[in-house]
Write a protein that binds this DNA or RNA. Structure first.
Lengths: 225, 225
DNA sequence: CCGGTCCTCCCCCGGCGGGGGGAGGTGCCG
DNA sequence: CGGCACCTCCCCCCGCCGGGGGAGGACCGG
């Protein structure tokens, strides 16, 4: 099965160059080219490609905005591969938030471009090595910062950790009592113990501590207890 | 300048195979092999390599633990590339936390292994496409989940947002009053308004909401008031 | 067997937090 | 000018929370 691709770049030469590079790969078919963000959206609607190769800097609507719009309205499985020339400090996070599946610099070897397109088409993601590093550091940092406080978590007993998490989820003492099938007084005593061991003032500080230490994490969370 | 590599894998054949694949590349020199986590640590201490190719499953100490220890004690620039056979669901995050610079599956094409080693040696990072996707989703999710709730944040006035943040930092009403030079009663009225607008029960829920919506974020925070 | 840790539960009480309801001042905009 | 939104402050009420202090039972290791 061939991968159907749209190439979007404001410079016709670059655009055509990429298209030719991709056409060498039998598994890839370039179905359209676009020179602006609007044209990219048009082409996406018209051809319903599997992958869009998107430049960031384009006149009128830029690639990030176009990416965001295409992915918001697309009812088929389209993935966007961002191609950019320069060090993409400010763009990369915005692009990932917009839903891009790849972010590669234009200096990659030609044969890797086709590999990237196929990878993206298969549901994978691909980032320039420097960006991958930044993303990993960002991920690990949260944990490194956590370990400082996480040392204190070790002083809590198993039960206390459970209850600390429940507190961090927003449960009241009576709710915790119900959930764990114990008395309200017991919960109070556990909470007091947690506060004493962690040197905190009130349950609010427990919530903050839990988020800062990684005991709980934003997102992995069923709010509707 | 050649990249000096240590290969750690408990299966001698696999180990030797990787070593031979890498030796084809003139820029790479395999300086040692290791069959256990302990041997990997030994080899790292002895040869001070630029890159360690590390298998996860090894007898005795596994690759993750070895990675963690090596990076903790290393006083030179060593980077770890994790190589694993299977779908690494539970391992990947642990590996990244341990400080690994790469996490690739053993089914990658041989020539890409050398590319990966060079990339890592140059300070970049490289992940299997499926893992990159997961990491991106995890990153984007925070913002997506955020925007859902962030819509509600828009209903707050400027003052209310300030106070919501202060609440999320753990300040009591009287502390907020001092900090903003207003009366305690005013703070209470603001807090009540925040609760009403966001449909929340108490200030604890404000803290949680703030973290979940991205109004505040774990880490970027001066705890000392 | 005794001491320690942990989990469980009890009483009293003061204080903070949140609901309800109201009100005065400002600045903006139709 | 008259609404409107916002910020400011006040009253009363009461429920939940946290501190202090205690106590009984289970388990585990010395």
């Amino acid at each position: 099965m061939t991968v159907r691709v749209v190439v979007a770049d404001d410079q016709a030469l670059v655009r055509r160059g990429f298209a030719m590079i991709l056409r060498v790969d039998d598994a890839i078919e370039v179905v359209a080219e676009a020179g602006t963000g609007h044209e990219a959206i048009e082409a996406a609607r018209l051809h319903r490609p599997d992958v869009i190769l998107m430049d960031i800097r384009m006149p009128g609507m830029d690639g990030l905005e176009a990416t965001s719009r295409i992915l918001r309205e697309a009812d088929w499985g389209v993935r966007v591969l961002i191609l950019t020339t320069f060090d993409p400090d400010e763009y990369v996070y915005e692009a990932l938030r917009a839903g891009a599946s790849a972010f590669v610099l234009k200096d990659i070897p030609p044969e890797q471009l086709a590999t990237a397109v196929r990878t993206v088409a298969e549901g994978g993601a691909m980032l320039a090595p420097s960006i991958t590093r930044r993303l990993i550091d960002r991920f690990a940092q949260r944990r490194v910062a956590g370990t400082a406080a996480a040392g204190r978590v070790g002083r809590l007993t198993e039960r206390e950790r459970e209850i600390a998490v429940a507190v961090a989820r927003g449960a009241s003492n009576s709710e915790i009592a119900e959930r764990f099938l114990i008395g309200a007084a017991t919960v109070k005593s556990h909470v007091s113990s947690i506060l004493a061991k962690l040197g905190l003032r009130d349950r609010i500080q427990i919530v903050i501590f839990a988020y800062e230490s990684g005991l709980v994490e934003a997102g992995d969370h069923d709010v509707g207890h």
